[in-house]
Design a protein around this nucleic acid. Structure first.
Lengths: 232, 232
DNA sequence: TTCATGCTTCGACGGTAACCGAAGGATCGC
DNA sequence: GCGATCCTTCGGTTACCGTCGAAGCATGAA
């Protein structure tokens, strides 16, 4: 009767918590093996195998065999876009994943939201970058300004590389504890990665929490709030 | 354990065919009553009521009571964006809604894809507008150029109104019969609406098919392929 | 008041799909 | 070759959720 894209089919694929967690784990941009994804989703390898098969058949993921491992990855940019769009809706509507255990102060301060930074620190970063003209909003989207490009590149961010990816460079994401936005997208992920690489923060692999050392946080804040100066 | 937006919850809401059809029916921008949506989705009113309740509770739809009717509508722009994003994935991956019956030539020629035009005519329109500089692509997105604005406004398109909406103005959508893109989004819907309003085409309310009269099609093609001239 | 319309609540039914463990390829290291 | 690792296939179980019709509750019309 009707034609047109079958949105329900794609949506239902992402609608299963296990599959959604797997796709989310891949949003970082790195391909992951089946076992990693199973662990990430909290299910048995056999179950994960079935899910991954569906995701690949449906064109959401692609797979690359390497030895006895099979590495999965987001198939196309449009998938990442759809995930980001769903994230935005979920964040606005206040649908957060279950978080057993008490909410402690450290979590409010800094934590990871999938692959990017969240919490007070992240909200502050986002606000500063907007204010300083590193980023600008244009009709709901967030962009890096020309001035911002210099600032980021000087700060050690490999901008050009990030832009080749399948995800939007910038996205805003509602912070549930602060009720304001923080930075997501490829750049958001890179900022967290950079903080970890430089030893300012460590990610507990178990709980996905991020903790800054006292000194690390000072350095991080200094890094992102360097004055954006006109070329000397 | 983990925080972050619960994408699975939102996705699973759109993952049910009945709900997806209802949301799709609302993408046209007009609010619809519960009974209309039930019919659109092909389910009993009681079933629809349950679905609509979920969609509203989840923040995907909003409802307005008027007399004994309840009119439903897309709650926020981000929902429309997510739907468009899912549409794009589904279209690329070739997931089309069931279409029983033989594929006939007329369908390939012109038909509707939800609320916008699809088929050879639509693909031609899209290609011409890109070529003529009415539209331009920028990183996967499609935009109306300044030149394009004049062209459209002169052609009777109330551009300003369209932009206030909750949907992106332009979107490209994969045409399954032509394997090329056609125009979706708010402008895509408007083009179809305009063709109907001017009597060039009629929509069969039953099958959502679009048929152009011989003369209507000529006029329509002339309309969209008027030469885009520099100001005299 | 009385009847009709539009929608929701309730109870019961049925099908789909997620889940796991055990067993079976495939590949690598030794 | 032999064991170890990684992944998939299979069978059986469970549970959730979409579905409908009948009945109830509003609102509007006569």
């Amino acid at each position: 009767m009707k034609d047109g894209p079958d949105i329900a089919r794609v949506a239902s694929l992402m609608g299963d918590p296990a599959r959604a967690n797997m796709v989310m784990a891949l949003m970082g941009g790195r391909a992951l093996a089946a076992a990693d994804l199973a662990r990430e989703a909290g299910i048995a390898p056999s179950t994960a195998s079935g899910h991954l098969d569906k995701l690949v058949s449906a064109g959401l993921l692609k797979v690359r065999s390497q030895g006895r491992n099979r590495y999965f990855d987001i198939a196309e940019p449009d998938v990442a876009e759809a995930v980001e769009a769903l994230t935005a809706v979920a964040a606005r509507a206040g649908h957060l994943r279950s978080r057993p255990g008490p909410r402690d102060e450290a979590m409010r301060h800094a934590r990871s939201c999938y692959d990017h930074l969240a919490g007070r620190v992240a909200v502050d970063l986002f606000a500063r970058w907007l204010e300083a003209g590193v980023l600008c909003r244009r009709g709901g989207d967030v962009h890096v300004t020309r001035k911002g490009r210099d600032f980021l590149v000087r700060g050690g961010v490999a901008l050009a590389q990030l832009e080749t990816g399948k995800r939007p460079l910038c996205r805003s994401c509602m912070d549930w504890s602060e009720r304001r936005h923080h930075l997501a997208g490829m750049l958001g992920a890179e900022v967290l990665a950079l903080a970890v690489t430089r030893g300012w923060a460590v990610r507990s692999s178990q709980a996905r929490a991020v903790s800054f050392s006292r000194r690390g946080e000072t350095e991080f804040v200094r890094w992102y709030s360097r004055i954006v100066q006109p070329a000397p």
